[in-house]
Amino acid sequence: MNTLPAYVTDIEQTVRHTLAEDIGRADVTAQLVAADKIASARVIAREDNAIICGRAWVDEVFRQIDPNLRPEWQVQDGERVKDNQVIFSISGSARALLTAERSALNLLQTLSGTATRVRQYVDAVKGTACRIADTRKTLPGLRNAQKYAVLCGGGVNHRIGLYDGILIKENHISAAGGIRQAIAQARALGSNVPLMTEAENLDEVRAALAADVDLLLVDDFDLITLRTAVQLTHAHRAKGGKTLIEYSGSASLATVHAQAETGVDRISVGALTKHVQAVDLSMRFI
């Protein structure tokens, strides 16, 4: 991917915070290197089949440290790399390179880890029409970056935050007095954002379909009940309804293909963004 989605507007702020927590008052170790020393370095993948993500964040790290530091990228966001493959090279002030190294790698490794995990799930549902979606279970301070990483991995975004979609969950249903009441109250708001609701049983599925919500999330249904919910949703759409159905809950790489084969439109997976294993990368001076 080369184009950032519209919601990614906080790269400068994210990087500024990242650098501030690492550098503090000054990088005292970098002062061991002569101020006028120039160096070149390469960042290399140390594992196979990683999906790279985070170029814009890395570029911003180096820009904020020294505007003359400009990575020469050899891969695009969303591209799969092999062990020992060069991801980018860079030349400039040795002190500046040393100061920027950890922050740049932290962001690149974390976002690439997210994208790599997403691609594993996307590959696991190949042969079905199901899409893999993220959740709001993101690392604090990295919401927009991780949401972008999901796209790089081939997934789709759920709502970005609390502001761009109404999602009625079990606690909302309980507080409102039932799913029908919660949906009615949501409609009364007159908002133009998507209306989504969870359902914990088939009665709630039927109520959500009767209201023709935009997205129905069936929570932890077993495969038999999930197939029934899918059949009800497809019958609803055959009559002109618009509701999409998404499985949410305990999807894993071991279960996701069978869940996708039921005919759900999407499967949301919190682990994509909260259980992140950073991709192994290293920067070496040359």
Rank of each mutant, 00 (worst) to 15 (best):
D22M: 01
P5I: 05
S91M: 06
D22G: 04
V256F: 10
A258Q: 13
A45W: 08
E261I: 14
G161T: 04
T114W: 05
F62W: 09
V86G: 01
V269A: 10
A96S: 15
A254D: 12
L151G: 13
R227W: 01
D134Q: 04
A258M: 09
V28A: 13
D83W: 00
Q120K: 15
E261L: 15
R180S: 14
E60A: 03
I90R: 00
V33E: 04
V156P: 06
L244H: 06
L272H: 07
L19S: 01
K274Y: 07
C53Q: 04
A50T: 08
T116F: 02
Q181A: 11
G270C: 11
D203H: 15
I65C: 13
V269P: 05
I132E: 07
L105D: 04
S91E: 12
D220P: 06
P5N: 09
P140L: 11
A145S: 09
D27Y: 01
D77L: 09
I224K: 14
L217W: 05
S103E: 05
W57Q: 03
T99D: 00
A145E: 08
L202Y: 03
I90A: 00
P67M: 00
V118Y: 07
E21R: 00
P71V: 10
Q146A: 01
Q277I: 12
V28E: 11
A229V: 06
R70F: 06
D83K: 13
T110N: 07
I160F: 15
E170L: 04
L253E: 09
A188P: 02
V43W: 03
I267V: 12
I168K: 07
G127V: 08
A26F: 14
L217E: 11
Y7D: 08
A229P: 11
S89V: 06
L4M: 07
V213H: 10
L151Y: 03
R46V: 09
V276S: 01
